[in-house]
Design a protein around this nucleic acid. Structure first.
Lengths: 215, 215
DNA sequence: CAGGTAACTCACTAGTACGTACATTAGAGG
DNA sequence: CCTCTAATGTACGTACTAGTGAGTTACCTG
């Protein structure tokens, strides 16, 4: 028993400390951007001190890259669990679009990190070997759906998987990422429940209509 | 003659100085974000000194807001020059989508500023009275096209103007705003000429297919 | 050309933010 | 129970960064 202390009893736990740093850092970076994020502020929101951030991550930039790696890894892992291949092509691509919509809706911090990383021209992503080798499981799913749809004649438009992914993502990403300026300028909160449901249907109909092509 | 010196001869010119500050500031903010932008760096890229930035704009934040106001004002002015109403509904909406595509392609700094402003939850836009009263001319254009298309029976889908604008914008915005992470992760530069042309066609076909609805 | 003011320059400060040197201790292994 | 090391806390240094006080000069007006 003495050699099996409960996790919460331990005062020192490298894994727990690292995980807490990453979680708090993700919020801070997502809220304020890379330059706007404050290492001291991250430290203030943890049980531990700023010293530990540097002990484990070395620098603000490497911490930021670690946050990106964790976020992207989780997203890709979730993508691998998507199962729409038992559905007919039209329903499969519609469902994939709606799941993408749900996913963006549920991971707003991740969306913000992506937007922030683009402001910096993806310079941090390019420094990460982890991210360079993550792969893109969703593209395989889309490819198979497109092949099946074209074989059955339901899809007329000749589109490739990356383009289709881009079309779906752009809609889902924009709704979350640009909600604030859009809300301020057009007076509509795209994330409000009533709009959310309609826009979710829209993205599915959009991609299906595009792939079916002119009647 | 003595009272009409050529602009370039004048050593002191408030308008020219203000304009130069705004131009350089726009680049700096677009490149590095709000927090990452450096007032000293803006000053270093101008003929004049940092002191003038504070003389004319008062603070980094007010300078940033002035940059946003200028950028948005120019965009809205350009939107007002769009003339697609002599076209039939299908061609009108397709052309509008392609013009939006071209516009985003040509104003990348503006796109970045919008992305940055969303990271900050549009807090600066909300502080600007100029931006609150800019209006959204493009929505009227879309409304009229949708009405005409529904009247003629060419458009079956019941969509409203804001949704249609959002669908078009999301595609055009994403291609430019997310080009770096997308390029790094999917190995495709969406802004390269060969992709540019195809994606331009795609956005038009997408919106037309969506509005025409199921066959 | 005289005088006043808007436009401008220079040198400086206060505060902040990343990062670190050094001291300390929990806890695993023998 | 002792020892060694990974983990942690404290306090501080250095460099940067937004913002300013005070003086100077170009240019307009009469």
């Amino acid at each position: 028993m003495t050699s099996q202390p409960v996790a919460s009893e331990r005062q020192r736990d490298a894994d727990r400390t690292k995980a807490e740093i990453l979680k708090v850092a993700q919020q801070e970076f997502a809220r304020h951007g890379y330059a706007g994020a404050r290492v001291d502020e991250i430290a203030a929101q943890m049980r531990t001190t700023k010293r530990m951030i540097y002990y484990y991550f070395g620098s603000k930039e490497r911490l930021y890259i670690a946050v990106l790696e964790k976020a992207y890894t989780e997203v890709r892992a979730m993508e691998r669990t998507i199962d729409v291949e038992h559905l007919a092509p039209v329903e499969a691509i519609r469902t994939l679009a709606e799941l993408t919509f749900d996913h963006h809706d549920a991971h707003r911090d991740f969306i913000k990190l992506v937007a922030i990383e683009n402001v910096h021209q993806a310079e941090h992503i390019r420094k990460s070997e982890v991210l360079a080798n993550l792969g893109t499981p969703v593209l395989d799913v889309i490819s198979r759906i497109l092949d099946a749809g074209q074989a059955s004649g339901e899809f007329v438009t000749d589109a490739d998987a990356i383009d289709v992914h881009m079309m779906i993502s752009s809609f889902c990403f924009f709704r979350v990422a640009n909600q604030h300026t859009f809300g301020a300028l057009f007076g509509r909160d795209m994330t409000a429940p009533e709009h959310r449901a309609r826009l979710r249907r829209m993205v599915g109909e959009m991609i299906v209509a595009y792939l079916r092509g002119p009647a």
